[in-house]
Structures are given as structure tokens and as C-alpha cells.
Computed example of a mutant assay.
Amino acid sequence: MKNKGLIITTIAFFLTVNTAYFWEGKLGLFAILAFLILVLVYFGLAIAFVRKLYFAVKEKLVDRTGLIMLSLMAIVLCLTFIFPFGIIDFDKLSGDDLLVAQREGVANCMTTFKLKDNHTFREKRVCFGVTEIKGNYKIVHDTIYFENVELGGHEDAFYKFAVIRPSKFNEDNKQFDLVRFKDFKDTTGHVLGIVKNDLGKPAGKIRTANTGFVQ
């Protein structure tokens, strides 16, 4: 029974880690607690594996179930160590990134915003928890409009549109910012630094020196 429980725990742990892409953004502040629990489970499984392996070698008694359990635990522990965020990159499977913008706030809080080639966007905020916001977008002339927004965590609103502008912190117009606005009365906007912009590819838009792209 102990071996069966250990096998079930190992499989459940592996599935939880490798499906984090789908659930981490829904937990908000509780995501940190969930990751701490996963870390504790990982070390618990590692200790159990070493203990089981020690007694198996010492007593030279490894039945078929014990061998399967040790092999399974070794594979899960190694794969999790090598791929702590999961074996499959579900973000890449959801579409190619046409635009990626980021901003680091206080306490190393990070906001990452992506426009996909299938007209969807995804924003991930990591700050004492994980919040994810998804939706669709459309580009009209030099403006990006956000539609069908799915809010995550404790968010109650999202930006209505965004534009790409040359960064204020460089003089050669080679760096661009994504500036998002809550509505047309918003004159300040929220700035994210663009780290990737492939909107100029045939499947996207043509970049210009003033706005970053045109239709």
C-alpha cells in the first residue's frame, strides 16, 4: 500500500508540474503557496527515492513493483530538475509570438505581454503570485484594440487599446515601447518595453520608424 501511494503521489506531482501553464494564472496570490508545496513534495520524493534505493541495494530485495516505483521516481525527479516548468512549452504551441513586451516593477515583479499570430494575446504578471489575462486583438491602422478579454486573479478591468511608440529613453528611434490605454480619456498610458517585434513580417504588419508598424 505504501508503494502504491508513493507511485500515485509521484504521478500526480508530475502531472501537476507539467500542466502549470493552465492553472497557475488562475490562482493569483495562491500560486506562490502552490509552488512552495510542489517544491516540498519534490524534496519529499527525492528523500523517499534515496531511502528506497538504499534499502533495496542493502537488502538486495527489489521486486517488480519496487523496481517500477524506483524507475518512475528517478525519471520524474530527473525530468523535473531539467524541465522545472514542464516538458512541453504550451505557450509556443498556442501560437508564434509576434510581439513581446515586458516591464519589471518593484520587488522584481514582472509583467510579460505577448501578441500571438492567431490574433490572441496573453499577459502574465508575476508579483507575489501569478495573474494571467487572455483575449483577442485586432490592429486598425496604428492602433491595437483588445477584445474578448478574460480577466484573471482580482483584476476588474483591462486596457482598451495600445500603440507602439519610440522609447523616450533612447535617441536613435531603434527602441520601441508598447503604450496601453484604459480608454480614450487616458492620456498617460502604461508603458512596456518591447523586446521582440515581428509585426513587420508578411503575416503581421509593416513597421515604420514613427509608430512601429502600419497596416
Results as ranks from 00 to 15, higher is better:
M1T: 08
M1L: 14
N3W: 00
K4A: 07
I7V: 09
I8L: 13
I8P: 10
I8R: 03
I8A: 15
T10P: 05
I11G: 02
A12C: 15
T16Q: 10
T19G: 04
T19S: 15
A20G: 07
A20I: 00
Y21Q: 01
K26E: 12
L33I: 11
F35Y: 14
L36Q: 12
L40S: 09
V41R: 01
Y42V: 10
L45S: 07
I47M: 10
A48K: 14
F49S: 07
V50L: 13
V50D: 12
R51N: 09
K52G: 05
A56Q: 05
V57D: 03
V57L: 14
K60M: 04
K60Y: 02
L61E: 13
G66R: 12
L67N: 13
L67H: 09
L72F: 06
L72M: 08
M73F: 05
A74S: 13
A74K: 08
V76H: 06
V76Y: 05
L77A: 01
F81K: 13
F81G: 09
I82V: 14
F83L: 05
P84C: 05
F85N: 10
F85W: 03
G86I: 00
I87R: 01
I88L: 03
D89F: 00
D89Y: 02
K92L: 04
S94R: 09
D97V: 13
D97H: 11
R103V: 15
E104T: 11
C109V: 03
T112E: 12
F113S: 02
F113T: 01
K114V: 12
K114Q: 10
L115S: 00
N118M: 01
N118H: 04
H119F: 12
F121K: 04
R122S: 03
K124G: 06
C127T: 00
F128W: 08
K134H: 05
G135H: 03
N136A: 06
K138V: 14
D142Y: 08
I144S: 07
E147H: 09
E147R: 15
L151G: 04
G152A: 02
H154L: 14
A157R: 15
F158R: 02
K160I: 00
F161M: 11
V163K: 15
R165F: 01
P166F: 11
D177N: 15
L178T: 02
V179Q: 05
K182G: 06
D183G: 14
G189A: 01
I194H: 08
V195P: 10
N197Q: 09
D198R: 14
L199P: 01
L199M: 03
K201R: 13
P202Y: 04
G204Y: 04
K205M: 13
K205C: 02
K205T: 03
G212D: 11
V214R: 13
